[in-house]
Amino acid sequence: MSEIFGIPIQAFMGQLMLGLVNGSFYAMLSLGLAVIFGMLNIINFAHGALYMVGAFMAWLGLTYLDLGYWQALVLAPLCVGVFGVLIERTMLQWLYKLDHLYGLLLTFGLALVLEGLFINIFGVSGQPYSIPDEFSGAFNLGFMFLPKYRAWVIVSSLVVCFATWYVIEKTRLGAYLRAATENPKLTQAFGINVPLMVMLTYGFGAALAGFAGVLAAPAIQVSPLMGSNLIIVVFAVVVIGGMGSILGSILTGIGLGVIEGLTKVFYAEASSTVVFIIMAIVLMIRPAGLFGKEK
């Protein structure tokens, strides 16, 4: 059997594929963070908790309302988005003019409250969410056995990521958004409702986290701690990609997922550290991140 770097090519390809799956999650979550930071200047530490809430919404819907996976995929992000709008209107909007630190503290506190609430109600071991019947089984790719559900995760998250990128970078609505970020006062003077756009942006970022949560529900245990296990890595992704850069967060997310996957083969013990080593190196060479602009 042929080998790459001393491991069989089959194992190598398999790990590459799995890295792509994890990278899709990183991309989707870091995208939401980047959108929120880019538009609102808020470092949204509640993002992991919103992802967890999305997964729980799917589980609650299935258990108590008999809503299937597809309904959950639409409804749960909507609910989380509305919840995000509520947070923005009642709390965050008072913090835009203050230092980043206040937004960070508020959202971090929110994350702790949400996690605590869910632990109290559901316990830490979490709840099982089965893979929808359409996706049971697997594709035989020759070099590996790829569960259909994981393939769906890659496809759907790529579609969502690039749609978001397209809307923000290539459409008129996106142009308004970008203008509102650059110079809110001037944009408002042109008759564009900036506070409304900001509110919807936060709602959209939250909905993205909720969407990722629903996608994750069948793949990993729906547990109150699922967000905090992931969020630190996602923050590293955003920093490496360049705070606020949309394309940067998508590409970095996928890239780091793959690098992490390969680390698991070569030296598994370092797989939780490798992202941070890369972060340190990138920050030394390019302090604004790979795709960030120096201000």
């Binding site: 790990q15 799995l18 890295g19 994981r150 701690l225 699922m226 296990n229 890595v233 083969v265 939780s272």
Partner: peptide, 8 residues
């Protein structure tokens, strides 16, 4: 507390 076990 790894987030994904598929690689392992």
């Amino acid at each position: 507390s790894a987030s994904d076990f598929s690689s392992f």
